[in-house]
Amino acid sequence: MTVHVMSVSPALNSALREARFDGDAPLDAAGVRQARDAAAAVPAADRYVRAPSQRCAGTADALGLRADPEPALRGWDLGRWSGRRLTEVSGSEPEAVSAWLTDPSAAPHGGESLTAFCARVADWLDSVAGRSDDGNVRMLVVAEPSVIRGLIVRALALPTESFWRLDVAPLTLTGLSGRAGRWNLRCGQPLSPPLRHDGDRIP
């Protein structure tokens, strides 16, 4: 059995353009246009799921996908920092931000610690591999960059701190293929122009 989990990061919205902790802001007009332009490059899958955020819902819609919301793939809960600028929080709570960036167990914002967040995402990936039937299974996921980074940490058995060393650009495709405990990674492929691999779109 081989499982393909193809993760698409959503288009930009105003919160990301302003370097804010995303408080579930929807796509802006530019983000919708960018996602629609990339729709032709989305690979086919057996099942489509998305994170429950407005940004991911809007991206899935603009890509032409009928994706089921998956609560386990919700973005990182940053508590009272949600919607605020990073520079603002760094200026008013420098020690809290330092702890957040250096201690995976810290949650000074009152939301999830990095450790708890990565564990939640890891549990979902393990469950996908564990409940799949024999044969190849292809799932496409529209999820926040933080979720995709968490999936990579789990798939490659990286230290939790490695999360901070991973970058996921908007509207890129990250592919994990394999099974629980043994995953291969194909990362950061732009959705436009259409991508090909062995005569088909990238798995």
Rank of each mutant, 00 (worst) to 15 (best):
D37K: 04
L158D: 02
F117I: 11
A51T: 01
A51I: 02
R55S: 03
A62I: 12
D46M: 05
S9H: 11
Q54F: 04
R196N: 04
L166D: 11
Q189K: 03
L125D: 01
G83V: 00
Y48H: 13
S192N: 11
A15Q: 00
G188I: 00
P194M: 09
L101P: 04
G135C: 06
D103A: 14
A40V: 12
L12D: 05
G130I: 13
Q34K: 11
D46I: 08
G130C: 07
G64C: 08
R196E: 13
A45Q: 06
R179P: 00
S132E: 06
S146I: 00
G64R: 11
E88N: 05
T160R: 06
A116S: 14
A169L: 13
P26N: 06
P43C: 08
V42F: 05
V121R: 01
T59Y: 08
T102D: 13
G58V: 01
T172N: 04
R17K: 14
A44G: 12
L171I: 07
S82I: 01
L171A: 05
I148F: 07
S192D: 10
G111Q: 09
W81Q: 01
R20F: 10
R33K: 07
V8F: 03
C187F: 14
N136F: 07
T115D: 15
A39T: 06
L114G: 02
T172D: 12
R74G: 13
T2C: 02
F163Y: 15
G150A: 15
V3W: 02
V153R: 08
C56P: 00
H197R: 08
D77A: 07
L78A: 03
P43D: 11
R154D: 11
V137D: 09
A19L: 15
D103E: 15
S90K: 14
S7T: 11
V128M: 03
E93N: 08
C118E: 13
L125T: 04
E88H: 12
A60N: 10
Q54M: 11
P194I: 11
V137S: 12
R186A: 15
D22N: 15
D61H: 13
V5G: 08
A45G: 08
T59A: 09
A99I: 09
A41M: 00
R55C: 08
G178W: 03
A99D: 15
C187Y: 14
R55N: 09
W100H: 09
